[in-house]
């Protein structure tokens, strides 16, 4: 029982560490901003989630059990898509010209560039940057 539990907790720790390392390695290695966005989100959910599972299992098996690591897991699972979406919007906003984007399906402009009166300033600023080659989507 104890040996199996040790193997289980060690496997969880190693899996979490490997996923964290792979996420950061992908962050350095991949060459496009959207691809770079892809890698660390795995570290955020699988890597840290697995380490927190290991901590919880360790506490339940050898200490007086506590499940408050679930708070961090739930918080990361809720917030990771939000921050990933915002960083993707930043990548779109910085890398594309407004004129190069295809027309949006329903609205007059894409939400990333819809900033009220600031839209004029930011669109002219992105023109001054000379546009870019990255295609949206």
């Amino acid at each position: 029982m104890s040996a199996a539990a040790e193997i289980f907790v060690s496997a969880l720790i190693v899996i979490g560490a490997v996923f964290t390392l792979v996420g950061s390695w992908g962050l350095v290695k991949l060459d496009a901003p959207m691809s770079r966005l892809h890698a660390p989100t795995k570290a955020g959910t699988l890597g840290v989630g697995s380490v927190l599972m290991a901590s919880m299992c360790y506490a339940f098996i050898w200490r007086d059990g506590s499940a408050h690591e679930l708070l961090i897991t739930a918080f990361l699972f809720v917030t990771a898509p939000v921050s990933a979406m915002l960083i993707a919007k930043v990548a779109i906003f910085r890398r594309t010209n407004v004129q190069e984007l295809p027309p949006p399906p329903t609205d007059t402009t894409w939400a990333t560039h819809d900033t009220g009166e600031r839209a004029i300033k930011s669109s002219s600023a992105s023109e001054n940057r000379g546009g870019n080659t990255a295609t949206p989507g």
Partner: peptide
């Protein structure tokens, strides 16, 4: 780009 730096900071916090 600044988006990559923001992403790197987010990854640093998670790590």
């Amino acid at each position: 780009d600044v988006g990559d730096r923001v992403l790197a900071l987010d990854t640093l916090a998670i790590n």
